[in-house]
Design a protein around this nucleic acid. Structure first.
Lengths: 216, 216
DNA sequence: GTAACGCTGTGAATAATTTCACAATATAAT
DNA sequence: ATTATATTGTGAAATTATTCACAGCGTTAC
């Protein structure tokens, strides 16, 4: 059981847990590494390697217990106490994010939203109270928020990040197409839709031309 | 110049291009690898390595020409002809995606949207015509669409993907929290917001506790 | 009981990615 | 012209991530 678990493994564990949760609802009680692997789109060896890092052991004959493994991943990934999340930017994307996460994980909930638009401030949108940017330090500190989501325009991203970090946020999920500059003790995950779409376009083209070559 | 360029490099090239475009607008004419690196949040060696793969050369004294390099990346990444994109799912997220990409890259535009909701079908939303799911094969084929974006609920994702692929799509950008099963000649990029948020929460917590340990 | 099976856990091998480090070089200064 | 300088391009090394391959082991079947 390694002292530190890689970013990629953490991501896959989150995926495994979701799949296990669905299996549990479907009444499954146990499964083998190769089954979980096929559902997750990875190899069986990868699954076993990942599970090593959380110290969960299966049985050679029954494989893994669906419920136990799910809970085990939960203990590893989740905070023992609830983690509140701050959302900055309540535009199209921000509201879509709110809707997407609404009612999903009670342990990791959006508990406050921030926007400059005075029409949104003090409203409750998707069950989340909306504050002005000025109130950010206050609210973040009083709620003990450690995680922020940035859904603001590119130009506003860095300053919003700075304010969040100053208020004590240690992790950012950044949807703005700008690399953020943050202190080394703050973790940033970028969701760069433009980059992703361009990657897809590039490889789609490549695959399409490979297909043509096959007939030669 | 390698025969095949890695997925990660393609992603970074897309980012470099965006940064170069901004620099160009700011009137910059040339820059060094370490400058681009610092803007992109990578090392200078990484930038030089990435640029090797598109065969662009700079000068030891002037560095890279901002305009030339940007165009060079464009020639490498972009299709010589325009690439149309199909968006499936015009809910909160779908509309946010439309708004996000509206007017960004003319070469890579959302040209058709699909949804089951009869209220949306035949409407024009964010400048994009909305069709029913039944029309998908037809429209995708007649428009020559090779790239699809899935912004549908998890349960609908696989079947939407199947239809797109059958109609000729070779690349998918998948926002649904489900691993898609597609033929090997179709490229899939997943944007899994739940996984990303859980990663951020995990590392935020970790960084926060490291901070505490520093004082010991 | 015990033999056979097919899985897990993991050390070792391989593959992919990044970084190091330095020769080659284009320019500016003198 | 020559020298000094700071950067590029790139083999080689280091690091990180994945896969192989197999010993060890519960369980089941007989």
């Amino acid at each position: 059981m390694p002292a530190t678990v890689s970013e990629k493994t953490i991501g896959r564990l989150s995926l495994y847990r979701r799949l296990l949760y669905e299996l549990r609802n479907a009444g499954e009680e146990n499964l083998y590494s190769h089954q979980l692997a096929q559902m997750a789109g990875v190899t069986a060896a990868q699954v076993r390697r990942d599970l090593m890092s959380i110290g969960y052991s299966g049985s050679p004959t029954r494989g893994y217990d669906v419920r136990e493994l799910g809970e085990s991943i939960g203990r590893f990934l989740d905070s023992p106490t609830d983690q509140g999340v701050a959302l900055v930017g309540v535009g199209n994307l921000g509201r879509a994010i709110m809707a997407f996460f609404a009612g999903r994980r009670p342990h990791l909930r959006i508990v406050a939203a921030f926007d400059t638009d005075p029409y949104k401030v003090n409203r409750v949108i998707q069950g989340v109270r909306c504050y002005s940017l000025e109130q950010m330090p206050q609210v973040v500190e009083s709620e003990g928020i450690q995680v922020g989501i940035l859904a603001v325009p590119a130009v506003a991203a860095q300053s919003a990040a700075d304010t969040l970090v100053r208020a004590g946020v240690r992790g950012l999920l950044n949807f703005a197409p700008v690399p953020l500059r943050v202190p080394p003790d703050v973790y940033v995950e970028d969701i760069d839709m433009t980059m992703s779409l361009e990657k897809v376009a590039y490889f789609a083209r490549q695959r399409a031309s490979q297909k043509e070559l096959q007939t030669w």
